[in-house]
Amino acid sequence: MAEVNNVVEALKFMALGMGVVFLFLYILVVLVKVQAALIAKYFPENTPKIPTTPVGNTVEDENRRVAAIIAAVSEFRKNKS
């Protein structure tokens, strides 16, 4: 009897916990988007747009790959220092 109750309680914890985690992260996502939009609007100079091209062309593909590698390496170095 008590055990059954406990499982029900645990399921309630799950509902509450997952709900709060998702709510928290969802609000965070919205805030981050708003923040990004505001910053892009009022401090635009430091946000250069990286042109994005559709997949298909092999040369473009190669370029994208190189760009990704460069980005990853620079990020890694930055983290390291």
């Binding site: 990004a36 892009a40 946000t47 747009k49 990286i50 760009a67 980005a71």
Partner: peptide
């Protein structure tokens, strides 16, 4: 897609 550049202020 490659991720965009993020502003320092963000």
């Amino acid at each position: 897609k490659t991720t965009r550049q993020v502003h320092r202020l963000e």
